[in-house]
Structure formats: structure tokens, C-alpha cells
């Protein structure tokens, strides 16, 4: 996902990427920084990462999108180039109240990308279109 975040968050993901590459762990100071920048959704996002909940779907046209399996098993489709998630938290916390940068699903996408833990899956162009429009799942 292209970064659309404040510089401090971008730097945090760069640090996580570098250290995780070397040690396959995230040290405590970076976990604290994650909690500081993203609040309570940081822990929930890390849970999603542990469960390998983020998949990058790609279709023959080259179009890609992320799909995140939520805690309840529901699938959330997120875009590559801008922040959007159909979950209620994104609508209320980010869009309506402007009190958060993103929801746990989008944060999980950033973390999985930084830690190279994103699953990969191919779908047809028609399936991709249905997912992007929110009318179907692969």
C-alpha cells in the first residue's frame, strides 16, 4: 500500500521492516511506538498479523487489492492507493469523528507489508471487479 501517513508513521514502518528482516521480531520500543501512534487498534492489528489475515489478491489485468479477514471471519477489501475499509470502525472513528488515522484492518495491511507476511492469491478479473465493488468475494 502506498504510504498516506504522517512522516512519523512512515518512519515507524521503515524501522519495523528493517528490524524484522534482521531479527524476525519487533522489539518492545517499536511496539510501544506503534501503540503510541495508532492507539488501541495497534494490538488488534498485530493479532490479525499473527493470524496471517492479510491477503494480496491479484487478477490477470494486473489489478490488486488487499483482503483482510476480520476477527469475526468477515472479509474486508482495502485498496492499494488510498485508505478505505468497509468496517464500522473506519466509518465512525476515521470518517465521522476524525479521531484515528486508520482502522485495525488497514494497519494490519501496513504491518504485513512491512514484515513480508502478506499472503498472495490470484483471482479472475470478474472476481476482482466484484470484490472492489463490494458485491462479491472470491
Amino acid at each position: 500500500m502506498r504510504c498516506l501517513l504522517p512522516a512519523v508513521a512512515e518512519q515507524l514502518f521503515r524501522d519495523i521492516r528493517k528490524i524484522y528482516e534482521e531479527t524476525t521480531q519487533i522489539p518492545d520500543d517499536l511496539l510501544i511506538a506503534l501503540k503510541f501512534v495508532f492507539g488501541s487498534c495497534a494490538l488488534q492489528a498485530l493479532d490479525l498479523v499473527d493470524q496471517r489475515s492479510v491477503t494480496c489478491l491479484s487478477s490477470p489485468s494486473g489489478r490488486k487489492a488487499f483482503q483482510v479477514i476480520g476477527g469475526s471471519g468477515r472479509l474486508y477489501t482495502c485498496f492499494l492507493s488510498c485508505h478505505y475499509c468497509p468496517c464500522p470502525a473506519f466509518t465512525y472513528t476515521v470518517l465521522r469523528r476524525n479521531q484515528g488515522l486508520l482502522c485495525k484492518h488497514i494497519l494490519a495491511v501496513y504491518l504485513c507489508q512491512a514484515m513480508a507476511l502478506t499472503q498472495q492469491e490470484s483471482v479472475s478479473d470478474q472476481q476482482m471487479s466484484a470484490m472492489l465493488s463490494g458485491t462479491g468475494a472470491p
Binding site: 487489492a65 488510498c82 485508505h83 472492489l132
Partner: peptide, 17 residues
């Protein structure tokens, strides 16, 4: 809000692709 965000994000992501 969610509908407006979905449509806007889809338009922008489609244009980027």
C-alpha cells in the same frame, strides 16, 4: 459516509491503476 468513501476510494484507486 461509508458509501461516499467507498465510491471515492474506488474512483481514485481505479485511476491510479
Amino acid at each position: 459516509e461509508s458509501g461516499a468513501a467507498h465510491l471515492s476510494a474506488l474512483l481514485c484507486d481505479t485511476a491510479a491503476f
